[in-house]
């Protein structure tokens, strides 16, 4: 029995990866939930918005790398991120102007907007593939690790190593900053409060003189910031491939619904719930168990509950459980 090593293995393969994946999901789900709260539809294009934002950021990153601009040890992508956000925000605002606004004025049913967002998704997906191609792109540079496994072993003298990738650390730090800034905006500024008011009670917000178009514009800008940031962090941490962003839709929606659609705090909690469930259920616990249990009880199977190919089944199962038992989510989101 060796608890210390068990904890290190746990941290290395479960806690840190789940924390950074959860942060990425939380940022994505925040965008979904904000759009839902204000525009009142589930935006199926959000995954591809993330891909678009990440792509623009990658293009800027490459440009900076070619020019020899670097902020090492931080990845150049971090420097390119604001540019990616600006372009993505411009794209979303233009999309709203050309596509969504019409349906808003028509007071179309939410499901029509969902369908329209599907069309937008198609187009974004096409744009991304035309510009950067469907393949995998690498764009990370700067330091690879905050702590790598060898250093950790030397430092602590433990048998197991702990690797803390720079991209994981960056994800966690950036997420904390982004979430803090978002909540400051929503809770402390007049504009943010008016967004919450509009989300809470549209008619009364209008009676109070809140300009709906302005609220909508701010929402798209926030969505662009969150989606691009989430997309870039995910790309840095894993790798950039357009199709994976489409596949993130399900866990993101699941996170937003688990927390209660329209509720920002819920989206964050939901993101971590989904990520931790996914990682713990698809992790092979053999190593941890070997350290924890006396040698006589050491397991001979992998002790993996689900193969990693079924990680989407985890989000889906959680989604189904929530839909059955608590359809408005843990933090009671908006009911329309």
């Amino acid at each position: 029995m060796d608890i210390l090593n068990a904890v290190v293995v746990l941290a290395n393969f479960v806690l840190i990866p789940a924390l950074s994946y959860g942060s990425q999901l939380a940022l994505g789900a925040l965008g979904v939930t904000l759009i839902y709260g204000i525009l009142r539809f589930s935006n199926f294009a959000h995954g591809d918005t993330m891909a678009f934002g990440a792509m623009v950021t990658i293009l800027f990153t490459w440009a900076f790398q070619n020019m020899g601009i670097s902020i090492a040890p931080l990845p150049t992508a971090l420097l390119a991120l604001p540019f990616g956000i600006v372009v993505t925000a411009a794209l979303l605002l233009a999309t709203d102007r050309v596509v969504y606004r019409f349906y808003r004025q028509q007071k179309a049913k939410p499901i029509i907007l969902v369908m329209v967002s599907l069309g937008v998704m198609f187009i974004l997906n096409g744009i991304v593939r035309v510009i950067i191609g469907p393949g995998e792109q690498r764009f990370e540079d700067g330091a690879r690790f905050i702590i790598n496994a060898r250093q950790f072993k030397e430092m602590t003298g433990l048998e197991e190593g702990l690797a803390f990738k720079a991209s994981q650390g960056l994800t966690i730090v950036v997420t904390i900053i982004a979430v803090a800034a978002l909540f400051w905006f929503l809770d402390r500024t007049k504009m943010g409060k008016s967004m919450r008011a509009y989300s809470d009670n549209e008619d009364l917000a209008l009676l109070s003189g809140i300009n709906p178009e302005r609220v909508v514009r701010i929402t798209w800008i926030l969505a662009a910031i969150l989606a691009t940031t989430a997309g870039v962090l995910y790309g840095l941490d894993k790798s950039f491939k357009p199709f994976t962003y489409f596949q993130l839709l399900l866990p993101m929606f699941a996170a937003a619904i688990v927390g209660g659609l329209g509720n920002p705090l819920g989206a964050i909690v939901g993101g971590y719930i989904i990520a931790f469930s996914e990682v713990t259920l698809t992790y092979a616990w053999k190593k941890v168990a070997t350290y924890f249990l006396p040698a006589s009880l050491a397991p001979d199977s992998l002790m993996q509950l689900l193969s990693t190919d079924y990680k989407y089944a985890v989000s889906f199962t959680i989604l189904v459980i929530v839909l059955i038992f608590k359809p408005y989510g843990l933090f009671r989101g908006k009911a329309v």
Binding site: S42, I111, V114, F253, Y310, A313, S315, L323, I324, P327
Partner: peptide
């Protein structure tokens, strides 16, 4: 599971079942 709830939920649930 998903019918009788908000219309978007069916869309999301079907998206999920297809992936699975």
């Amino acid at each position: 599971t998903a019918l009788g709830l908000r219309s978007d939920y069916l869309a999301i649930a079907t998206l999920g079942i297809a992936e699975i």
